[in-house]
Design a protein around this nucleic acid. Structure first.
Length: 906
RNA sequence: GGGCGAUUGGCUCAGUCGGUUAGAGCGCGCGGUUCACAUCCGCGAGGUCACUGGUUCGAAUCCAGUAUCGCCCACCA
């Protein structure tokens, strides 16, 4: 037993405790300090790796708290619990951040070149990694740091190469030219998921294209067809004009040709079903290289697809004066030029949706590129099967619909990125264009098609989408593709906890790749967290300036309070507003727990030596209070177990908050104070009371440990332990189920209600707080022993002394004076008399008014209860238990009404 | 255009396999310096559970529709 400081100061508590956990080596399931039962199945959580470039925000803190909660719970249950931490290199996000830093120094990706840029990135990420890891420790993550992984480490690199090679061999990775989303700012392609559809007000321009007079092979100055476009610059890439096959207006024009302005290209008018006759003029220009619809149309009609936009979104390859201009400048000039020519028929404001880059917010351009794709359909089918059969469960369940929809309509995944920071695609091309994919770290020995030596092969310059390596995370971290001991023991993992906003980016890809590559679902349960929002409900973001730094919060109120607050409001898939009041409440709770424990420790009877081994309360000396404490603790264990099973972590905190504060502290400790007083009872009885408090507190500390690990560890250390207990709570055992005593719980509840009613009466009668009441009470015989045992506590808590007991209700009534206060409790009948010195008359009037209100209320309920019992339909159709309950309720109300009437002299 | 979620006292949220009188924290009012805690203790006020209709003996809870707010998905120039 150690001494606790008077004031609760989380800062002084938390740091040293984390160090002790580390020193004791308790985080690793196979660590020196582990108490795991090797025969139990392992419980594994692979942490969603935070990006190296960002610092921890509240969302991370919440997720870490939830993951750590599950891990600590599993660990206390004796499972070998692996919480594997990691970091993500975050390819595009990291480059975006670094590019910003470089820009301030007047440098850029281009000026540095690939090698120096990557060096710079490594140095940068090396500087941020320790910060992020330290932040996680501050939150209290009991992660196995010896197994720390990084999506850019060698283990991950190996898995990436192996995964890609297998997918390639299985025909699930292929290289092709296709229309992709190009970000001119990031200078790379991005996947469909990274396109943010953004509503914008633009312009719809109507442009006249001149029909070709085939007799002269020249455009007809008077015969035109008008097309509508929002991107006039793409005119330079047009290779057709399309109309609907059944559009009467244009029927005669199909098959004729028009001249594309500026490039002076003569292109056909084609008929195609994609055209919406009602939009614009019903005629649409076709730019196959820069629009998805047009690309498909071009394919169907065998149209050429000239690319007219360079990587930086300037115009190129058109042979016009616009080459070299930025896309928007070109647009402006083209509109001007068309106006000048008289070919701009009209223009109008147009509401539209443009795709912007998730990272840079640039407007994306569809472009043709040769890229690697993952064939997703077969993979998605397997992922769907896993959730449909329940082998993997998604929480909350409603996300399964979203999941179904997305995976059913999935398109192939473009994994090539024209970036530098990431895993280079392990594909080599020989001068003849043959492709060789190799998982070998040193590359292939030669072209696998024609045998040319490695020296003549050129590796693909692109890297993988960062989510490709993330998609391998649950098994790459464990050593896959090798059958390592960790992989064999801890895979598949137990729970994947992450925020719902990356269900497609990440969860779906882990499922698809995991099942394909390892033959099994990578996790049994997907727990989707909600987002943390600011007090107004807005998403936290740096630009809005409403971001809360979790470390600042921890400095201020402690990691325990932060964790409690975050978990308290956590329901799967449900966003949570977060402000200071929740935090303060959590901090107050920690403080309450601290002080309650201090009280218990300080209340140790002198007959028990300091440092005594923990004993069970002596059964011969336990009374109702002691049995109540044990029973309520048992009830809480059961309720918490049930909530844990349901992943209802917010419910766990609510249960413990109520049990500890509203029951244990408010009543248990208060009753115990009296029982522990020197003058009350025997030494043995006092000891039994104290050991009961210790036992209940011990249970609560264990139950609360996964939520508030630091303070519970510190407090638990200060309590007496059993010889079989380990030194640290983190590796102590979760409380087992214990027997409850419903009768005792009910009896003590009645006594508690009695105290409450007495306080009630004195408050509404405006008695001075310090005044003692002379009180008489009738207590039913069966409640007698419990009442007698707690009588001194009742006297103290209600300031009612002497508290005299009458043997019958009649005697009680007979002894009451006309101006006495009266209290009516469910199963007891109590009267109280104010000491003569108090302003009895006024108090009695106030009290009488209170009783009148109470009577009116009770009569109302009674009438309702009787109506129900008089209802034949209810009596015949409601289940017997409900009818029985209603009967009991009515009887109780009738009794209460009778007693109230009696007291009011009616 | 499709899908999903939210709507409960001033604020933030619990609570739904339908079942006694819908709970908590914050805030608010009144009262408290008894040796765990003023980061506290006691007492209290405050809710037609968004609206309409339905199912049922019984609806915050189930069904249908409406409204407001929010999110996700979606190739229309």
């Amino acid at each position: 037993m150690t001494k606790l400081s008077k004031a609760y100061t989380p800062r002084e508590v938390e740091g040293p405790i984390y160090e002790r956990w580390l020193a004791a080596d308790v985080f690793a399931p196979d660590g020196a300090g582990s108490t795991a039962d090797p025969d139990l199945p392992p419980f594994t959580i692979i942490q969603p790796p935070p990006n190296v470039t960002g610092s921890l925000h509240l969302g991370h803190a919440q997720r870490t708290a939830v993951e750590d909660l599950m891990i600590r719970h599993a660990r206390m249950l004796g499972h070998p619990a692996l919480f594997l931490p990691g970091l993500d290199h975050a390819s595009i996000a990291a480059q975006f951040v670094l590019d910003g830093i470089l820009a301030k120094e007047g440098e850029s990706r281009q000026t540095l070149g690939r090698e120096r840029y990557l060096e710079r990135m490594r140095a940068f990420s090396d500087s941020t990694k320790p910060i992020i890891l330290a932040q996680q420790r501050r939150v209290g993550a009991s992660a196995d740091w010896s197994r720390l992984r990084y999506t850019m480490d060698d283990v991950s690199a190996r898995a990436v190469r192996a995964a890609f090679e297998r997918l390639y061999r299985d025909g699930l990775a292929y290289r092709t030219e296709a229309l992709i989303n190009w970000c001119p700012g990031c200078r790379t392609s991005v996947s469909d998921l990274e396109v943010i559809p953004t509503p914008e007000t633009g312009t719809l321009w109507f442009v006249r294209y001149h029909l070709i007079d085939e007799s002269r092979s020249a455009p007809d100055p008077d015969a035109t067809i008008t097309v509508a476009t929002t991107r006039p610059e793409t005119i330079l890439g047009d290779t057709a004009v399309a109309v609907h096959p059944e559009d009467e207006r244009y029927r005669d024009l199909v098959g004729r040709r028009v001249r594309i302005p500026f490039v002076d290209r003569d292109v056909p008018i084609i008929a195609d079903e994609v055209v919406d006759r009602t939009f614009g003029t019903g005629a649409v220009k076709i730019t196959p290289a820069h629009d998805p619809d047009d690309y498909a149309t071009g394919k169907r009609h065998g149209l050429p697809a000239p690319t007219i936009l360079a990587d930086d979104a300037t115009i190129e390859n058109t042979g016009t004066e616009f080459d070299g201009l930025d896309r928007y400048e070109a647009r402006r000039q083209i509109v001007a030029a068309l106006t000048e020519r008289g070919d701009l028929a009209s223009e109008r404001v147009h509401e539209m949706i443009v795709g912007r880059c998730q990272r840079s917010n640039d407007v994306l351009e569809p472009r043709l590129k040769t890229q690697w794709f993952i064939r997703t359909e077969p993979l998605a089918a397997q992922a769907l099967e896993a959730t449909r059969t329940g082998r993997t469960r998604i929480l909350p369940e409603r996300f399964e619909k979203t999941w179904e929809h997305w995976l059913t309509n999935i398109r192939d995944w473009n994994v090539s990125r024209q970036l530098w920071w990431g895993h280079r695609i392990p594909a080599w091309y020989c001068p003849d264009g043959h492709v060789t994919v190799s998982a070998d770290a040193t590359g292939p020995t030669g072209c696998e098609v024609c045998g040319r030596p490695a020296s003549e092969l050129q590796q693909d310059a692109d890297i993988f989408d960062t989510w490709f390596s993330s998609g391998l995370w649950p098994f790459s971290t464990l050593g896959w593709p090798d059958p390592t001991p960790d992989y064999q023991r801890y895979y598949p993992t137990s729970v994947m906890e992450t925020a719902y906003d990356i269900i497609f980016f990440w969860v779906a890809r882990m499922m698809m790749l995991g099942i394909q590559l390892t033959g099994t679902e990578p996790f049994h349960t997907v727990y989707l967290s909600g987002l943390i929002r600011d007090p107004e409900g807005a998403k936290m973001s740096k630009t809005k300036g409403n971001v809360i730094d979790p470390i600042g919060v921890i400095d201020e109120t402690g990691a325990d309070a932060l964790r409690f607050a975050l978990i308290h409001g956590a329901a799967p898939g449900q966003d949570q507003r977060f402000g200071t009041s929740k935090l303060e409440n959590a901090r107050n709770f920690a403080n309450k727990l601290w002080n309650a424990t201090r009280f218990v420790i300080g209340a140790r009877p002198v007959s028990i030596p300091d440092g005594a081994e923990r004993r069970l309360p002596d059964a011969r000396h336990v009374g109702p209070l002691e049995r109540w404490l044990a029973s309520r603790a048992a009830a809480t264990v059961a309720a918490v177990d049930s909530a844990m099973t349901d992943f209802a972590f917010g419910e766990v905190t609510r249960l413990l908050y109520d049990a500890i504060w509203s029951e244990f502290c408010d009543w248990g400790v208060e009753f115990a104070k009296v029982r522990l007083a020197e003058e009350a009872g025997s030494i043995e009885a006092r000891e039994a009371t104290w050991w009961s408090l210790v036992a209940a507190l011990d249970t609560y500390l264990r139950l609360l440990h996964p939520v508030m690990p630091f303070v519970t560890e510190a407090l638990w250390e200060a309590l007496p332990h059993r010889a079989s207990d380990p030194d640290l709570l983190i590796v102590a055992r979760w409380p087992g189920a214990a027997e409850r005593e419903p009768a005792i719980e009910a009896e003590v509840s009645a006594v508690i209600a009695l105290v409450t009613e007495l306080r009630n009466a004195r408050a509404s009668a405006k008695l001075a707080a310090g005044d003692w009441l002379e009180t008489r009470v009738f207590v039913p015989i069966e409640l007698g022993p419990t009442f007698e045992a707690l009588r001194p506590a009742v006297e103290r808590l209600a300031r009612a002394r002497p508290l005299e007991r009458e043997l019958t209700p009649e005697a009680l009534h007979a002894s009451a004076g006309p101006r006495d206060l009266s209290v009516v409790v469910g199963g007891t009948d109590i009267e109280a008399r104010v000491r003569p010195a108090a302003p009895a008359a006024e108090a009695a009037d106030l009290e009488r008014a209170r009783l009148e209100r109470e009577l009116a209320e009770a009569e109302g309920w009674l009438a309702a209860a009787r109506d129900r019992l008089a209802n034949d339909a209810f009596m015949s159709k409601a289940p017997p238990a409900v009818v029985e309950g209603a009967r009991g309720r009515a009887a109780e109300l009738a009794d209460q009404v009778a007693r109230l009437r009696d007291r009011l002299g009616r």
